Computed example of a mutant assay.
Amino acid sequence: MNKKNGLSRYRREKLLRAFVADLTASQAALFLGLSRTTVNRYYHLFRTAIATHQQTLAREALCTGTVEIDESYFGPTRPRGVTGKLKRGRGTLKQPVFGVFERGGRVFTEIVPDTNKKTLQALIRGRIALDATVVPDGWRAYDGLVDVGYDRHLRIRKARPKAFSKDGVHINGIESFWSFTKRRLAKFNGVSVNFELHLKECEWRWGKGPDTLANELKTFLV
Rank of each mutant, 00 (worst) to 15 (best):
N2V: 10
N2K: 14
K3P: 01
K3M: 06
K4M: 08
S8Y: 14
R12L: 12
R12V: 09
E13C: 09
L15N: 07
A18N: 00
A18C: 12
V20I: 04
V20K: 00
V20N: 00
A25T: 07
Q27K: 11
A28L: 01
L30H: 11
F31H: 10
T38M: 02
R41Y: 07
Y43D: 01
Y43W: 06
L45S: 12
F46I: 10
R47E: 06
A51Q: 09
A51R: 10
A51N: 02
T52H: 13
Q55L: 11
T56C: 07
L57S: 08
A61E: 15
A61C: 08
G65W: 05
G65E: 08
I69T: 05
I69A: 07
D70M: 03
D70I: 00
S72N: 13
G75A: 08
T77D: 06
R78I: 02
V82I: 13
T83C: 11
R90E: 13
Q95W: 06
E102I: 04
R103T: 01
G104V: 06
T109N: 15
D114A: 05
D114S: 06
K118D: 14
K118W: 05
I124Q: 00
G126P: 00
I128Q: 07
A129Q: 03
L130I: 03
V134Q: 12
D143Y: 09
G144P: 12
V146A: 15
D151K: 13
L154Y: 05
A159I: 04
K162L: 07
K162H: 11
F164C: 04
F164M: 10
K166A: 13
G168K: 13
G168Y: 08
V169Y: 07
V169W: 04
H170P: 09
I171R: 09
I171E: 11
G173W: 05
I174S: 11
E175D: 07
F177C: 03
F177G: 02
F177K: 03
W178Q: 03
T181C: 13
R183V: 09
K187G: 05
V193T: 15
L197R: 11
H198Y: 15
L199D: 13
E201V: 03
E203P: 01
W204Y: 09
R205P: 02
G209Y: 03
K218A: 10
K218I: 06
